[in-house]
């Protein structure tokens, strides 16, 4: 996220090898765009315009094309996010089981303030998302790559403590 980091190429060494493995799965380079963006996001924490340009270059497409794709998929971060990126499902089936309370609890416990904003200490970004596909385990919450189920506002302080 620092300026320096942004100037270092993402696809070198191991990451480049990983890219080549991915490229081998598809008949053309463009098709590797989604997995390549996943790598870029893992390495950088988010996908900046510069990152898009780099991804575009390695895949032989234009940066504008990459940007069109990045902005389509909600899981690619177009801005830096906190160390812990918390996605709380608030679609109808979770809503009736109290998902909005879970969001509120997370916002209060982490000091992130508003949904989508990052807390002052840079540790937390809480977002409301549409259906996470675990409606029977309401409320499902994704903390980074950890999928938590049956989260209630009461359980939030413990979760926050664990990831802090």
């Amino acid at each position: 996220m620092t300026v320096l980091e942004d100037y270092l190429p993402i696809f070198t060494g191991k990451t480049l090898e990983e890219l080549h493995t991915i490229l081998a799965r598809y008949p053309n380079k463009q098709a590797a765009l989604l997995p390549t963006l996943w790598i870029a996001q893992r390495e950088r924490g988010w996908i900046s315009d510069r990152t898009m340009a780099e991804v575009a270059e390695v895949l032989g497409v234009t940066p504008a094309y990459v940007k069109g794709v990045v902005t389509f998929y909600t899981m690619y971060h177009q801005h830096p996010v906190g160390k812990n990126f918390v996605q709380v499902c608030t679609t109808s089936p979770c809503n009736i089981r109290g998902a909005e309370g879970v969001v509120k609890a997370f916002l209060e416990q982490t000091g992130a303030g508003d949904a989508g904003a990052t807390s002052q200490d840079g540790k937390w970004t809480i977002v409301e998302v549409e259906c996470l596909g675990a409606c029977g385990f309401a409320t499902p919450v994704l903390v980074n790559d950890d999928f938590l189920e049956n989260v209630t506002p009461e359980k939030v302080p413990e979760i926050v403590k664990k990831y802090r």
């Binding site: 989604l34 997995p35 996943w38 389509f72 998929y73 909600t74 899981m75 690619y76 549409e130 259906c131």
Partner: peptide, 12 residues
């Protein structure tokens, strides 16, 4: 037969 996993990125 080649089988690959492809990860979506948030789009219903």
């Amino acid at each position: 037969i080649k089988v690959y996993l492809h990860r979506g990125a948030g789009a219903y």
